[in-house]
Simulated assay, not measured.
Amino acid sequence: MFFAQYYLDCLSHASYLIADETTGQAVVVDPRRDVSEYLADASARGLTVVGVINTHFHADFVAGHLELADRTGAWIGYGRRAETEYPIRKLAEGERIVLGDVVLEIMETPGHTPESVSVLVYERAGDEVPYGVLTGDALFIGDVGRPDLLASVGVTAEELGAMLHDSVQHKLMGLPDEVRVFPAHGAGSSCGKNLSTEKSSTIGEQRATNYACAPMDRDAFVALVTAGQSTAPGYFAYDADLNRKDRRLYDSATAARALT
């Protein structure tokens, strides 16, 4: 298995390239808009990007799913509740994406957004315990994704918080302690309030140290994770909507329009 994390400090954003080196098939998860680094690494290793997964509609940046699909012909995957202007592969609970002996399995983990998914990574198809889980914005190192960002579009923080309680307390904390945790963001992101500077962890470490992973009932969880959240930046709703749209592709050769 080839597994790489790409961390963009200015966005506190982590994305991932996972591949089976025998078959050469690869998937990128939560890509940034400039996709050149993924493609360069894939080319250098003889890999072909066959799929792109966004764990949810990102609000803090415009993702690179359309750019990757345009450059490689890859399918674009989202959780089954997602609706977009462009063709997507809707990914449901338990669906397995076979790259060869390396297998990705979808776990629906709504709460930060209704369509959020996590991706279990199996180094070998027969493994009982996954190598790791890409948690998107459901579970961070030291925190969980804030459930209040969609309150302005008809889903309350309490409704999303109840979903997040099940996703974190039951699904993600139901994984074995040794499973590695790879989130989509680190310290500095406005998608949570207590994110660590660490870029990976384990389920066991989060069970022991993450305030939101301690056993508690739904009401206590919702009250805890919704308290003390900063005001969401004004561009979050704009970016989340743009990630649903069939927008213009990024072109590094095109100069930015000067502001007055």
Results as ranks from 00 to 15, higher is better:
H112W: 12
L104G: 01
P130C: 00
T135A: 10
G136S: 11
E123H: 03
P130E: 02
V119M: 09
D137F: 09
Y122K: 10
T113Q: 06
E123F: 02
D101W: 10
L104D: 04
A125Y: 06
G111E: 02
E115G: 10
T109N: 14
V121L: 15
V119S: 02
G126Y: 03
D137G: 06
E123M: 05
Y122H: 00
S116Y: 01
D101C: 08
G136P: 03
D127I: 04
T113L: 01
G132V: 13
P130M: 09
G126W: 07
A138Q: 07
L120S: 12
E105P: 05
V102N: 08
V102P: 07
I106S: 11
D101K: 08
A138H: 05
A138T: 08
D127R: 11
D101S: 09
G126P: 01
E105G: 14
A138V: 10
T135M: 14
E128S: 08
V129C: 00
Y131F: 15
G100N: 05
L134D: 09
E128Q: 06
H112C: 05
V129M: 00
S116A: 14
G100T: 11
V102K: 12
D127S: 09
V102I: 12
P130T: 12
T135G: 03
V133N: 03
T109I: 15
E115D: 06
L120D: 09
L134I: 15
G132I: 06
V129L: 03
V119A: 05
D101V: 09
P110V: 04
V133M: 11
G136I: 13
D101Q: 08
G100H: 10
R124Q: 02
Y122A: 00
V121Y: 11
G126K: 10
G126L: 06
L134K: 13
V133D: 00
T135Y: 14
V103G: 12
V117D: 01
G126C: 06
S118W: 14
L120N: 00
E108H: 03
L134W: 13
I106D: 04
Y131M: 04
P114H: 05
G100P: 07
A125W: 10
E128C: 01
D137V: 07
P114R: 06
G111W: 11
V102A: 13
S116Q: 13
A125M: 05
R124T: 13
D101T: 13
T109D: 14
V121W: 06
T135I: 13
D127C: 12
E115Q: 13
G136N: 02
V119G: 04
P114M: 00
E123C: 00
V119Q: 02
E105F: 15
V133I: 15
H112P: 00
G100C: 08
E115T: 11
I106K: 07
G111A: 05
T109A: 15
G100L: 06
P110H: 03
D101N: 14
E123G: 01
V121Q: 10
P114K: 05
I106F: 04
V121E: 08
S118L: 14
P130H: 13
V103N: 01
G136F: 12
E115P: 01
R124N: 08
Y131D: 02
A138R: 00
V102W: 03
D137S: 15
D101F: 11
T135P: 01
